[in-house]
Each structure stands twice: as C-alpha cells, then as structure tokens.
Amino acid sequence: MAKKRVVSTTINGNQTEFLCEPRQTLLEVLRDTLNLTGAKEGCSNGNCGACTVLVDGRPVDSCLVLAVEIEGADLETIEGVACSEALHPVQQCYLENAALQCGICTPGFIMSTKALLDENSSPSEDDIRFYLAGNLCRCTGYDKIVRAVQDSAELMASNGIDGVQIDR
C-alpha cells in the first residue's frame, strides 16, 4: 500500500490539513476522516449527485475525485452553507417548499443549487432542470425542488445571501 500523504486545503473557510491514502476518494475522506457526513454516497460512480461539493466554486461529485487532488483547493460542503445563526436562503426555500421527503439527496441538491445561482442569478425553469439533472431525487418528482430553486433566486435577488432565521 502506498504511503499516506498530507493534503492542505480550505474547507468551509477553514485551513485544513489531513492525511489520506492515495486511493481514497474525497468523499471517503470527508465522511470517514473529517467527520463531514453531510455528503452522501448513493452510487460511488458519479451518477446520483448525492455527494456533490463545491471545489473552487464548481460542483463536483466527491466520489469521483481523489482526496489528494484537492491539494490547495477551496472546498465547500453542506456543513458550511448555513452561517452560525441562520440558514442560507437556499436551505430556507427548500424547507418552505417541502422540497425534500427522505432528505438523502438534499445536501447534494443544495450544493448544486448554490453553484447554479452563483453562475446565473435568474435561471429559467429550463435552466434549473438542465443544471440539476445530475442530481437524482426519487421521492419528490422534482416539482417542489424546482420551485425551491426559483424562490431561492427571488429571495437572493431581494435579500442577497443574508441568512434567514428560522422559527423552529
């Protein structure tokens, strides 16, 4: 077995170093080494999008990236989306629209939604459906997810990315 390597990266704004084997995927290291289990494993071959994280702002399937590849990268996971006091507008809109049922795909969808809205602040329904086609949901039929993304775009247009306090 190859020796472990040290990888330096920024995760959710924090400078982080970790040890990993060269064969370990980013998803495995996030979940098993760094205790960031919000990224989910649905297929391990990039088909389902449940493990989506943002690497330098781009959505990637963390099951398809080796952990050693993110040396020097800026990584954002679902754990870093809400600020300490409040939810991100995207999270809030997913909740208000009941855009989740079982919730296993939700972290991946929220990361992809965030990336979409960073690229295109007022996407059409077709833009949304095309962009999110790499994230699979088997529960909702996507209707309420698309509406959540539309609402997120509106909320962010009026409020920016200021968090929303949730009364729960």
Partner: peptide, 23 residues
C-alpha cells in the same frame, strides 16, 4: 396548514444521520 417539518433543519444542513453515518 403547511408548517416547516420538524426534522427539516437537520436535513438541509447535512446533520441528519442516515444508516451509513453510524460510527
């Protein structure tokens, strides 16, 4: 009525623990 589900915040923040998250 349509209240926010009770387990909602856990599920949009990645904190909800599924079977594979057991340690």
């Amino acid at each position: 009525t349509r209240p926010i589900r009770h387990d909602g915040v856990d599920k949009v923040t990645g904190r909800a623990l599924y079977g594979a998250d057991v340690k």
